[in-house]
Design a protein around this nucleic acid. Structure first.
Lengths: 143, 143
DNA sequence: ATATCACATTAGATATAGTCTAAGTTCTCA
DNA sequence: TGAGAACTTAGACTATATCTAATGTGATAT
């Protein structure tokens, strides 16, 4: 996605396209690494040092509220962030904490009645388990 | 589950059945509220003040490691804990952060290949969305 | 043009959640 | 009964994230 498209997607949600906000969004769209806020802060300031930690947090909050970014909480670790592009599920490794995207596929609804009145957010779910590196026989590097 | 059964389940995993640890486990088994560590600490000490915060955290860590308890991370909030009884999925409300159990049902695996070498943990997943209270028309109390 | 005002950024203080340390206690088993 | 392992504890510490108050920036009206 080009600069103009990012700018438009920001403004479509009522957010100004500031250099700092743009940098966060652009970085999230070009990576598939599900970075933490600290990693985003570093990446943005590596290119052109011009965003504070507070602004990085502010912008991440705004982008999540605007529905452009998803935050993924992980037990005992910093939250990770993911630009919402195409619908997809997530997989989090129980051992190293890495987050991976899983291509979208339809999941059946829970037993009728058990989710009455609840609105599932597009039925995107989080799977847990051991990633390729951490599974027995894998390279098993701790992240 | 009675006291003896809790004691046995602890010792089966190699953990001593201390009063503090027993209290944490018993509280988690009798509630369906997915409490935070602070709530567990308070509940335990309300009955008989005899556990420190550090011990509560230590025991929660031990119980999670032993596979008797599940920790559920939530963006921007304290982790919540859940005694693993019968297999079940989880639902987390995007608005109030409440966690609900969803009765177990089989989910189809992701598209073949997309999880190569990954090991799904029993295919229990976390759904996201709006709970009954927070959905439009619901009572909408913030938790 | 420029005044105004809402939106945005910033450094640093503060809050919250959770971990570590070092000392003491209790259990187990030889 | 003594030794070592497992456990508990208060309080210090760390990590993550939010808040505050001052400053900066850009859109709009006049």
């Amino acid at each position: 996605m080009d600069a103009e498209a990012i700018k438009r997607s920001l403004e479509d949600t009522g957010l100004r396209c500031t250099p700092q906000r743009y940098a966060v969004m652009a970085f999230l769209m070009e990576t598939d690494q599900h970075p933490t806020s600290a990693e985003i802060f570093e990446a943005v300031n590596r290119v052109d040092p011009r965003s504070s930690r507070a602004t990085t947090y502010n912008n991440l909050r705004d982008l999540v509220q605007a529905g452009l970014v998803r935050e993924v909480a992980i037990e005992g670790r910093a939250a990770r962030f993911d630009a919402k592009g195409m619908r997809h599920h997530h997989f989090i490794c129980d051992r190293c904490g890495n987050v991976e995207d899983i291509d979208w596929y339809d999941l059946p609804s829970p037993a009728p009645g058990s989710l009455d009145k609840r609105i599932l957010r597009e039925s995107e779910v989080i799977f847990r388990g051991l990633c390729a590196k951490c599974a027995p026989g894998g390279a098993s590097r701790q992240a």
